[in-house]
Write a protein that binds this DNA or RNA. Structure first.
Length: 422
RNA sequence: GUGGGUGUAGCUCAAAGGUUAGAGCAUCAGGCUGUGGUCCUGGGGGCUGAGGGUUCGAGACCCUUCACCCACCCCA
């Protein structure tokens, strides 16, 4: 019979990788709390329309990467491919725009995109998401960069670049679009097939192309950054100044563009050369029109997402020594009768107690205990029972002592030695 | 969706068309009474990803298919 395995791009996450996930979340929650973010948990499944309207119906995500199906009632439903859409929906649905002057929220969970898997890219992947609604001032843009910096520092990651850019607002982007199309029309013959398609669709994304020839062309092209309107220019200048005050170095990448339609003004990406081709592991930006476009009041917004799988690849393996607890080795049926009382006492007092469920030779049990890297082994057999004692062996010190056969006293002694071990 | 690479034991990999497909690691059991790691001995474990073909003979060669990996597109 064929083994059933996970769907393509879906994985079991466990062991060392899961430990890194947990560490990342722990560090994240520390700073999201400190900076006043409120955590929310949102549905994984939403109406398809939510994503079509927010992400943009000509983006690749919406066109070919969503897990979409029709449910029994006939509605088109979609497994969320990113977090911001749901966050905006929730902000509007819960009426937060009316009850607080600004809103800082964050969320952690799985996202789904129907893409071809590769290094650092899966169909089910995890994002940590941060959003601020109702603040148009550039100081909050810088605050998010600061937050990113604190996270990276505490996680012990130092090989990365923070790239920033401005993609302007509706007005400056529209007028620039025409300039850009005119330019590329004159150089059409030099562009690759993909870029010719981009020219029709979204010419800004030609800047993303990895083809050398195209890169040469874009080198000669006018840049959106250089034709920002005064408001957008001022916003970016302020942002830069605040970032500098935080003492954070960022690289201005005037070619940086994002794949989602809703971004305005500030955009940023954190990249690492240690990740393979998918080198961006955090990214975000401002979206000052999105809330209104989704049917809410005109409300500024900004946020970013962390790709947890990608970030985990950069997190150094933790070398914290974990407490492997104690093993109970028993010889003979009479000894087994004491198992439950000892297990109860240990568990109550916070000591991990493990033992062999099936009867085995003492040698086998010792081997097992060693295998589990237990720090202590309790040995109980007929000899001990006769004398009313139990043997406690310290595995690393290779010493052992006799204790009275009393679960409470045994547990107290182990606790005392555990503290001494540290 | 497109291109390239790889599929052999739980894991990492051998076997240049010729016996019964091997090794290391892992696992389990022994090495005289009830004591772990090192060492020694032994055991279990495989439809060689699947299906077809060529051949006296296929893990190997050919075709098909599936899976995984990497890359493109795009994105975290």
């Amino acid at each position: 019979m064929e083994k059933i395995r996970t769907l393509r791009g879906f994985r079991d996450i466990f062991g060392e990788e899961l430990e890194k996930f947990k560490r990342i979340e722990r560090v994240f929650r520390k700073y999201s709390d400190l900076l006043g973010f409120r955590e929310v948990e949102l549905p994984v499944l939403e109406k398809t329309e939510l994503f079509v309207r927010s992400i943009g119906d000509t983006t690749d995500i919406v066109e070919k990467e969503m897990f979409t199906f029709t449910d029994v009632g006939g509605d088109s439903l979609t497994m969320r491919p990113e977090a911001t859409a749901g966050m905006v929906r929730s902000y509007l649905q819960e009426g937060l725009y009316a009850t607080e002057r600004m809103t800082k929220v964050c969320s952690v969970g799985p996202m789904f995109r129907h893409e071809r898997p590769q290094k650092g890219r899966y169909r089910e992947f995890h994002q940590i998401d941060v959003e601020v609604f109702g603040v148009k001032e550039a100081i909050v843009d810088a605050e998010l960069i600061f937050m990113i910096r604190m996270l990276l520092d505490e996680l012990g990651i130092d090989r990365y670049r923070i790239e920033v850019n401005s993609v302007g607002c509706k007005t400056c982007r529209e007028s620039f679009r025409k300039v850009l199309i005119d330019f590329f029309e004159t150089r059409k013959s030099e562009l690759c097939e993909d870029c010719l398609r981009r020219l029709e669709r979204n010419p800004l994304r030609i800047f993303d192309c990895k083809n050398e020839q195209c890169i040469r062309v874009t080198g000669d092209s006018p840049l959106l950054f250089d034709s920002l309107c005064d408001e957008c220019k001022d916003h970016f200048t302020l942002f830069q100044g605040y970032v500098k005050e935080f003492g954070i170095e960022v690289d201005i990448n005037k070619r940086l563009v994002r794949g989602l339609d809703y971004y305005t003004k500030t955009v940023f990406e954190v990249t690492s050369e240690d990740l393979g081709a998918q080198k961006a592991f955090m990214a975000g930006g401002r979206y000052d029109n999105l809330v209104e476009e989704m049917g809410g009041p005109a409300t500024a917004g900004i946020g970013f997402a962390i790709g947890v799988e990608r970030l985990a690849m950069l997190v150094p393996a933790s070398r914290e020594k974990e407490d492997r607890g104690c093993f109970f080795a028993c010889v003979g049926d009479r000894a087994r009768d004491h198992l439950i009382s000892i297990l109860k006492a240990c568990t109550t007092e916070g000591i991990t107690l493990r033992y062999a469920y099936e009867a085995k030779s003492l040698k086998a049990q010792m081997r097992y205990a060693d295998n589990l890297k237990c720090d202590f082994v309790l040995i109980l057999g007929d000899d001990e029972i006769e004398k009313g004692i139990i043997t406690l062996r310290n595995m690393s010190a290779k010493t052992q002592q006799e204790l009275p056969l009393d679960p409470q006293k045994v547990v107290m002694e182990i606790k005392r030695q555990v503290i001494g071990n540290r």
